[in-house]
Amino acid sequence: MNIFILTGAGVSAESGLGVFRGEGAALWKRYDPMQLATPEAFARDPALVHDFYNARRNNLIAASPNAAHFALARLDAGLAQRGGALTLVTQNIDDLHERAGSTNVIHMHGELLKARCASCGAVCDCREDLSTGARCDCGGALRPHVVWFGETPLFMEDIFAALDAADLFVAIGTSGAVYPAAGFVREARARGLRCSELNLEPSENAAEFDDRRYGPASEIVPSWVEEMLGS
């Protein structure tokens, strides 16, 4: 069996990483994304943008994978042993899936622990704070390697190829509000795939799913994975 899983901020929330949307302390309720997460914002005030992402980078470095991340890594290994595959497409810019042991992770919104040159596009590892003086070898300014509002998500051809090869589509910890990721369930249904949602609460597109389970990711994801590996 080939499984396509889409993850969002809800899978990392219990590791202490903030979600962008929803109730409580969602990041875009506390901060204006137009001042922090657009190319125009970076051009206007790069120091402010760097401060925001430096804080998030430090938070990520101090965080650890939770039970949901480890469960998905077990699923990855279990499917491989049976001749199947897991493609894990994440909207998250953290590396917690990889730290837990998942091997085929597609970061459609970029990666916080990388930086990208605003001039030549070169990408490099980055675990330190960035400043307005950070420069690429070509002399261009370095920016966080994340997809901002108004920019095209990464690896879209790979994502649709994985959907074409999948037998099951699962969304975990997603709001169902951010496109194009929110449209993947419809693409999956058009391909005849069964679709499941694992979430803290119903997403905005919950009606698109055949199966739905709700609760903390650290509880419902391991339980679902054990069922999948036992079937």
Rank of each mutant, 00 (worst) to 15 (best):
L79K: 12
L79Q: 09
L79M: 11
L79P: 01
A80M: 00
A80H: 07
Q81I: 01
Q81E: 15
Q81R: 13
Q81K: 10
Q81F: 00
R82W: 03
R82L: 07
R82D: 09
R82G: 07
G83F: 00
G83P: 09
G84H: 13
G84R: 15
G84D: 06
G84F: 15
G84N: 14
A85I: 00
L86V: 09
L86S: 00
L86N: 00
L86A: 04
T87L: 05
T87G: 04
T87H: 14
T87K: 06
T87C: 14
L88P: 15
L88S: 01
L88Q: 08
L88F: 09
V89G: 13
V89H: 13
V89Q: 13
V89R: 02
T90E: 11
T90M: 14
T90I: 09
T90K: 13
Q91F: 13
Q91T: 04
Q91C: 07
N92C: 08
N92I: 08
N92K: 08
N92R: 05
N92H: 08
I93M: 14
I93C: 03
D94F: 13
D94I: 06
D94Y: 12
D95I: 05
D95R: 07
D95P: 05
D95C: 12
D95L: 08
L96S: 02
L96G: 00
L96V: 02
L96A: 05
L96H: 04
L96Y: 14
L96D: 02
H97Q: 12
H97N: 04
H97E: 06
H97R: 08
E98K: 12
E98M: 10
E98I: 07
E98F: 01
E98S: 11
R99V: 02
A100I: 08
A100H: 01
A100R: 00
G101S: 07
G101D: 06
G101W: 01
G101C: 14
S102K: 03
S102N: 10
S102V: 02
T103H: 07
T103F: 01
T103M: 12
T103S: 04
N104C: 07
N104G: 01
N104K: 14
N104V: 04
V105R: 13
V105Y: 11
V105N: 14
I106V: 15
I106C: 11
H107E: 10
H107K: 04
H107R: 06
H107F: 10
H107I: 00
M108T: 13
M108I: 15
M108A: 14
M108Q: 13
M108W: 02
H109S: 05
H109N: 15
H109E: 08
G110E: 04
G110F: 15
G110V: 15
